[in-house]
Amino acid sequence: MEIPYTVEARPDTGLNNVKLGIWLFLASEVMLFGGLFSSYVLLRVGAVEWPQGAEFLNIPIGTVNTIILIASSVTMVMAYASLKLGDFAKYKTYMLATVLLPVLFLCIKGYEYWEKVSHDHLPSHSTFLAIYWTMTALHGIHIIGGIVVNGYFWGPGSKMWHIKREMFENRVEAAGLYWHFVDLVWIFLFPVLYLL
């Protein structure tokens, strides 16, 4: 017996396994970042003083990074739409952009980190910097994970399109859902850390 509904949707749930799986995973991710955001609020309201993000962080750089990440989310969704239209070449282009944009994001992030380290603004400096480092680093790990997955579906994994087309579309959809979630986390992280 083969495992059913790996590709096609189960009639009564209207889902294939992959899609349900990725949503469940994202639900747990919501709780993971929820725990961190909650800690942030608790530590902030309990603090005697809390710096404005701008005292330590570079808002223009953060803004550029936000735009970059949103752009990669857009290219991701375009890559998936191209697949749906059967345009594999376009998919490749969009997916490449989806892989390269977060690499750029990480380079800029790396520069920011380097700047912090050179000013001795390490996590042990203050609770604000501690939470900044922890949350952005954890988000960064998620970005790296996304780059690996998307890179795989751009490169070696994309061969599957020619063999099992529907399965490949499902996988890209799941990777996309994850990627949008990572973007979504940053959409909250950016104002919380940089602007408030």
Partner: peptide
């Protein structure tokens, strides 16, 4: 992002809606 990029606005699956 959630509604359009993640297509939640047109998600009909009860399993996903309940989980979320």
């Amino acid at each position: 992002v959630a509604s359009f990029f993640m297509h939640l606005s047109e998600e009909r699956s009860k399993a996903i809606i309940w989980t979320l």
